[in-house]
């Protein structure tokens, strides 16, 4: 086993362990930063695989995402700081079985794969070809992703903004009646 394999398995262990602890810790902030640790380990594995841009982009993007996640966790949880132990699960047995079955099935699939062995050539450029691909042959895919993200932003603002067209959304935001007499009618 080379040192690269050792580093790989270490990172894999970090990614899996932190991913598991996400659902076991009592503190919501810790949960989101544990998930971040899992993502950082995966980002490092991507770097080892030669994805010079994607690896760092994953770390960068996930840092921002998990920061936002931590904020939302604290906002919505009754136990944000983890002062009380808690278990907030349902259908636990089923979930464990489903997780294990997924793992077993996908591992069996991965182990049975017989794919061509064409590794990334050493010292190959990876970032510039990606950029040319994004804005060249695959521009439609890239732009679709961009438009989807724009639509997402609009959706998010529409769903979450408090001020509706006819007043605050949590008070109903219903259009006023045309005839004032109807409104008074119960």
């Amino acid at each position: 086993m080379s040192w690269a394999d050792g580093v790989f398995w270490l990172l894999a262990a970090v990614a899996l362990l932190t991913g598991w602890r996400v659902f076991r810790t009592d503190s919501m902030v810790r949960a989101s930063f544990l998930l971040l640790a899992s993502f950082i380990a995966v980002g490092a594995m991507m770097l080892m695989l030669g994805a010079a841009y994607l690896g760092f982009a994953t770390i960068f993007m996930m840092a921002v995402e998990m920061m936002v996640m931590a904020l939302f966790m604290v906002m919505f949880m009754m136990n944000p700081a983890g002062l009380n132990p808690m278990v907030m699960v349902h259908q636990h047995g089923l979930a464990i079985v489903a997780g294990l079955v997924t793992f077993a099935g996908l591992s069996a699939f991965a182990l049975s794969l017989d794919l061509p062995d064409r590794p990334l050539p050493g010292g190959a450029e990876v970032i510039a070809p990606l950029g040319r691909e994004l804005l060249g042959p695959s521009m439609l895919v890239f732009e679709s992703a961009g438009v989807t993200l724009l639509a997402t932003m609009l959706c998010v603002v529409i769903l979450s903004s408090r001020s509706g067209r006819f007043g605050p959304s949590d008070l109903g935001s219903v259009p006023p009646a045309v005839d004032p007499a109807i409104e008074e009618d119960p």
């Binding site: 770390i59 840092a63 920061m67």
Partner: peptide, 8 residues
């Protein structure tokens, strides 16, 4: 990434 992690 350094900037983002600094916020954290």
């Amino acid at each position: 990434a350094v900037e983002a992690l600094t916020v954290i």
